[in-house]
Design a protein around this nucleic acid. Structure first.
Lengths: 340, 340
DNA sequence: TTGAAAGCGGTACCAA
DNA sequence: TTGGTACCGCTTTCAA
């Protein structure tokens, strides 16, 4: 390129266009107070030099970081497993791409220490924070709230009354649909394998299960609850306990995640139970696991990419000064496959 | 905290510690030329104020961005499917966490335009670039090379002679192992479903297949090759074509990805062929799909997280001035399950 | 070993 | 509408 070493600067563009730095800055930032002739002149210089503004310099003066952090609180991200994470990142990235805002990925597990994370995000080094797969009593949302840092949770917090915005799937409604589907197929002994109950998502899916039973007039079966932890192992173990229960055998299981449903499938196979003939199984998420399970899993699809996208929109709006405290619940969809 | 509005600055730390900004800077950056007493004094002030250096200001003067970009070239990332992507990001993130370097995620598909990407990464806005799942004739590696921007590819480029560093799995060796395993199990009509042949990974796995046949004295079966594209659909279609071939039926298939193997499984089921009795199937990657397929897939595990980690190490070394042109090939491992 | 001061590349206020 | 200029927070000579 033209000019000295390193990338071109505003100064160089100004020199080439024969105007001042201030004018180039206005053009670059789309200020209306520039005559068309000068604007064209400057734009030509920008193009010729391949000028891209220096973010560091700009951030320094505007005091905006032009970046948002996506904090993934391991180890719970693991429970949601990979497709969840990848889809979310894709949604966030897509929403951000339209703006000039960068995505800073912070995987809590990998960080030097928790204190650093807190100081970093409240220290004005990012404009806002996206928090995913939060553990029940995580203090970070509160810290951010107090520090006045815009934040949006992906997945509702355990504390219903907590301030702050979140985006979530309609976990309760989705779970209800799943159970309703099982009931309509004539199942009467419908069990559930719950997720971690210290997460909003785990609680909501359990509530939805109960809603579904009640709607079908099956509320009496409320005992058929086993606690899982969103992992495949946990799902298999819970299914094992369900099979050992005395009394009439279970004829259907709603697992609060596809991974747990896959575990249940394994346990059922080991016990010689046929799916769906003897026991119908429904999962939640519609991840790859559901499609490749044998039999393929009937499941509740959550629009994870869209959740990432909407959370980002909400966050950017807050950064721009709009009010927080929004709760956005996205619809789920029952995907019927062979397992139920 | 103490002090004025906004996060604490060097100036404030200096005032509190009763020293100059220069001294605080030295302490923060670990310069040896500071007396222990002063150092302790400053460290106390830093802790008290919760001081975190302002990256923008630092970048501006050091001319380092303290960030690296991970460029994922869609749509091919899709073929590698989600687990690949998630694992890689995790590895990169883990390696970066130890240093102070940030990860900037650029999903090419989402970007405003290709020109922007090029200008951005060569414009000194990142210290280095990680390039993943590259399409055959992508000009980006060459552009980076010419601009002197450190870069490391994850997955070798099609052009063997291209300059630059890369990290890859031993695709050829892994494919060879897979075919060797099939041969040892007595299979004689071993077919392969290839990946996209405009990617290094697709080519290498095909070569490995041929190596394996040759080693087993089965080279004559070299005709049993169908081209796929790393997708499940592609795998199913290729398997269909294999089944329609005249002559002795195929008794084993090596698919160059788990996703394609899953597609093959589907096609075989549709055709009423039993796996592994009539046709054995082996995949590549050891993703979740392999574990949940029915029957579970024998596959070749590639250490994707480790690939991300090593690529990052290589990149940081280059940023620090070490030579490029490294080729790091990580070992693969055969994971035997029920499908073969 | 420490401090003073000159920028790094932008933005935005104030004048012209 | 345009230009001059004072910072933004930090690093890094250069002197003391």
């Amino acid at each position: 390129m033209t000019g000295g070493p390193g990338p071109p600067t505003l100064e160089q563009v100004a020199a080439l266009a024969g105007v001042s730095r201030a004018t180039v800055s206005r053009v670059v930032n789309g200020s209306p107070k520039v005559s068309p002739a000068v604007r064209a002149q400057v734009e030509r210089a920008v193009a010729k030099l391949g000028y891209v503004p220096n973010r560091a310099a700009r951030s320094l003066v505007t005091r905006r970081a032009d970046s948002v952090a996506l904090v993934v609180s391991e180890p719970h991200a693991r429970f949601f497993s990979e497709p969840f994470f990848a889809g979310m990142v894709r949604g966030v990235s897509a929403a951000l791409a339209e703006t000039g805002v960068q995505l800073l990925l912070l995987i809590a597990q990998d960080l030097p220490d928790r204190g650093w994370l807190e100081r970093y995000v409240v220290g004005g080094h990012v404009d806002g924070v996206l928090l995913a797969s939060l553990h029940g009593d995580d203090p970070l949302p509160g810290t951010l709230e107090r520090a006045g840092v815009p934040a949006v949770l992906i997945g509702r917090p355990v504390d219903q009354a907590a301030p702050g915005s979140y985006v979530d799937a309609d976990n309760r409604g989705g779970a209800g649909k799943a159970v309703g589907h099982l009931a309509r197929r004539g199942r009467r002994r419908i069990a559930t394998i719950t997720g971690s109950l210290d997460m909003g998502v785990g609680q909501d899916r359990l509530e939805g299960y109960r809603d579904g039973l009640a709607a079908a007039g099956l509320a009496g079966a409320g005992e058929l609850v086993e606690t899982g932890d969103f992992t495949e192992e946990g799902g298999a173990a819970a299914m094992g306990r369900l099979l050992e229960r005395p009394g009439d055998p279970v004829d259907a299981v709603f697992a609060a995640s596809d991974l747990m449903a896959a575990g249940a499938l394994r346990a059922l196979r080991a016990a010689g139970r046929r799916v769906p003939e003897e026991v119908a199984v429904v999962g939640f998420e519609d991840s790859a696991v559901a499609r490749y399970a044998q039999p393929p899993l009937t499941t509740v699809r959550q629009p994870i990419e869209e959740m990432g996208r909407q959370a980002t929109r909400l966050l950017l709006a807050q950064v721009a000064g709009e009010a927080g405290g929004m709760h956005l619940i996205l619809d789920t969809e029952l995907v019927v496959r062979a397992s139920a």
